[in-house]
């Protein structure tokens, strides 16, 4: 029997689900058609038919941000034999985790006419803060090739082949001239997990850290220190580490250190 797939959405922009549709919906070059490998049983963004659980593999997009989300993710955990979180929101809390630095009541009264109707958590949390996650696939959004690799590895029963190095390796592979060295643009690539293929530096922009902190002791203090000594402003460095993966522990700690909020 083919594995049965479920896809879920929490607090997110739907971009990662679009990548899932992209992967399922068309044959990948050199890969073939993923939809032939699985039965899509629950995927509200893509089809209205819902097959009953439990499911073999569940993909979760989005962060946990309400008490109801907590109940729902616990229920989903029970329904899915293998739970994979996808994207910066599900793996690190997403851009909306910026609220974790503020006061939730201030936001509520600024945005809603009747804050009393709003039932929310004070923080935007990664899924793993609430349930056990079997595999985290990072990225903002996730890379279709990596998703296909994770799903096919799951179907065959082997480890997915994902990069365990920095974005700089991808720059060097594609021959990109380093924007940090040649243009003095503070870039997060040296401390960011590879995955995108080094897109932004190839288009003359810094790496924004979409794939989260590099898994091997990312040395943010050294990197931002070098940028600062070469003229970068501390506030802008704080904002650089405070984007899609702001709440990832290493980026969060560095932001707080730069802004003087560190304990």
């Amino acid at each position: 029997m083919r594995p049965r797939l479920a896809v879920y959405k929490f607090a997110s922009c739907d971009g990662c689900q679009l990548q899932v549709i992209d992967v399922l919906g068309r044959a990948r070059p050199h890969l073939g058609e993923l939809a032939e490998l699985l039965d899509i049983e629950h995927f509200l963004e893509a089809r209205s038919r819902i097959g009953a659980g439990p499911y073999d593999v569940g993909l979760v997009e989005g962060s946990v941000s309400t008490p109801h989300d907590i109940e729902r993710i616990k229920e989903i955990r029970q329904q899915c034999r293998f739970l994979v979180t996808i994207g910066a929101c599900a793996t690190a809390g997403g851009i909306q985790a910026l609220r974790n630095w503020g006061q939730i009541d201030d936001f509520l009264s600024a945005v809603y006419a009747t804050p009393a109707y709003i039932d929310t958590l004070a923080t935007s949390d990664p899924v793993a803060a609430h349930v056990k996650v079997d595999f985290e696939l990072r990225g903002c959004p996730i890379d279709p090739g990596q998703l296909a690799s994770v799903i096919s590895a799951f179907c065959v029963g082997r480890k997915p082949r994902l990069p365990g190095y920095s974005v700089c390796v991808e720059c060097k592979e594609r021959g990109t001239v380093c924007v940090a060295v040649a243009k003095g643009i503070p870039c997060l690539g040296p401390v960011t997990q590879a995955g995108c293929g080094g897109i932004c530096p190839a288009h003359d922009r810094e790496c924004f850290g979409c794939y989260g902190p590099d898994r091997q002791e990312p040395n943010l203090v050294s990197l931002t220190g070098f940028y600062e000594r070469h003229g970068a402003n501390r506030d802008s460095l704080g904002r650089l580490v405070q984007s899609f993966n702001a709440w990832a522990p290493e980026f969060r700690t560095e932001h707080d250190r730069l802004s003087g909020d560190a304990p």
Binding site: G32, E36, C168, K172, P190, V191, N219, L223
Partner: peptide, 30 residues
């Protein structure tokens, strides 16, 4: 090591560094 980022740039730009890894890649059907 307090300064090094372990980012690998030095080895990749070095014209003599020769290390490589070899891995098998399959399509979805194998």
């Amino acid at each position: 090591a307090d300064r090094c980022l372990s980012c690998a740039n030095c080895t990749l730009v070095c014209p003599t560094c020769f290390c490589s890894s070899v891995g098998e890649v399959t399509d979805l059907t194998g």
